[in-house]
């Protein structure tokens, strides 16, 4: 009996929990071709895949807007929640407190965060809730035909010729000042930096706030816009280079002492910040705020990891919650016995 030799299929590439990158993909995007948001979804897929985060433990959260549609386009088997406009932080807070094992990633936009959502945004930052909060920031309202948002730079021009005459809200500066513990800015077109920031975000415990400039190809990618691909490429001034070493990879990274800062994150992974300005301390809020303020003055788009605080208690630790998710506690642990009620009633006599 003859047999035909079938060459063995090449082994499928899997991550440390045995899943393929396809397991981290979502539905096909319905956003415009070339939208920066799609590139960010790609980096999220790569980062969660490479870090080996089990999708069933991920809670994808968003508000309303183009950005808020994007959680449908990554990690299709994860749980998702499309909240009301600007109110994703409160849903995230409730969900993460109910189940502390969830890896919460919120995707918002500049309108969803800095206009309608500014109230919940600032209080989320204060609580240092363990979650990743991403702003897909294009400076305009893409779903309603491109009006300026509150992160649009002063002097920036709309397609219609309208000039923005109000100063922008710097969400990174706000986040740092208010208490977020891992804060950076990136550009949807900067694959390497964005992925390193995202992987560090997964390894961190506390509120991560990443403002990702993500040009709107339909309404804000023209000359005169300060959130266009060409403007950001021309004006991006990275605050050094960011690289990431996950805890499960035994890599010795060689670097020149003094020129690189190494930060060990909650899960043991490390972010390495190379070529930072002399004396820049990523644990110092003042340094970060000065760099951000100076960048505005110079019309530069400063990117990178500005601030990391690995010491600050996260909200779950602060509330001293039991180790198991509250949502999984059986009745015997949440309904006190009859004796407790009887004693309480006696105390009111």
């Amino acid at each position: 009996m003859s047999s035909t030799a079938v060459p063995p299929a090449p082994p499928k590439k899997v991550n440390r929990i045995g899943l393929e990158v396809a397991d981290y993909r979502g539905a096909r995007t319905t956003l415009c071709a070339g939208c920066g948001h799609n590139a960010i979804s790609e980096r999220i897929i790569e980062s969660f895949y490479e870090m080996g985060v089990p999708p069933h433990r991920v809670a994808k959260l968003s508000g309303i807007g183009c950005s808020s549609k994007s959680p449908a386009y990554f990690m299709g088997t994860a749980f998702g929640f499309n909240a009301v406009h600007g109110r994703m932080p409160s849903i995230a807070t409730g969900a993460v407190l109910a189940n502390r094992d969830l890896v919460a990633i919120g995707v918002s936009g500049d309108g969803d965060t800095a206009s309608i959502g500014i109230g919940q945004f600032v209080h989320l930052m204060r609580r240092n809730l363990p979650m990743i909060y991403i702003i897909e920031d294009n400076g305009v309202y893409g779903l309603t035909k491109g009006q300026f948002s509150a992160t649009a730079d002063i002097g920036s021009k709309l397609k219609t010729g309208v000039i923005n005459d109000l100063p922008p809200i710097d969400t990174c500066a706000l986040a740092i000042q208010l208490g977020a513990t891992y804060v950076g800015r990136s550009f949807s077109g900067d694959k390497h930096q964005l992925k390193a920031l995202l992987q560090g975000a997964i390894a961190h415990r506390g509120t991560v706030m990443l403002d990702v400039i993500s040009p709107c190809v339909t309404f804000n990618d023209h000359e005169g816009s300060t959130k266009s691909y060409s403007y950001v490429k021309d004006h991006e001034e990275p605050l050094g280079d960011v690289s990431f070493v996950p805890f499960f990879q035994d890599i010795e990274v060689e670097y020149e002492p003094g020129a690189t800062k190494e930060i060990t994150l909650f899960d043991g992974s490390k972010v390495l910040l190379h070529k930072l300005p002399a004396d820049y301390d990523p644990a110092d809020k003042c340094d970060a705020l000065r760099v951000l303020t100076e960048a505005h003055d110079k019309n530069e788009v400063v990117t990178g990891l500005f601030y990391v605080n690995t010491e600050q208690e996260d909200f779950i630790t602060m509330l001293d919650l039991v180790d198991e998710p509250l949502a999984t506690l059986p009745e015997s642990r949440v309904r006190p016995p009859r004796k407790v009620l009887d004693e309480l009633m006696e105390s009111y006599r």
């Binding site: 809670a59 929640f81 909240a83 009301v84 109110r87 932080p89 409160s90 849903i91 995230a92 807070t93 409730g94 969900a95 993460v96 407190l97 109910a98 189940n99 969830l102 109230g119 919940q120 209080h123 998710p325 509250l326 949502a327 999984t328 949440v334």
Partner: peptide, 21 residues
């Protein structure tokens, strides 16, 4: 919570995740 918008949001977030809220 900072206000009622957030209070009901947190209650719904927790209810969604399976805790009584």
């Amino acid at each position: 919570a900072e206000d009622e918008l957030a209070a009901i949001g947190m209650a719904l977030g927790a209810g969604w995740a399976g805790a009584r809220s």
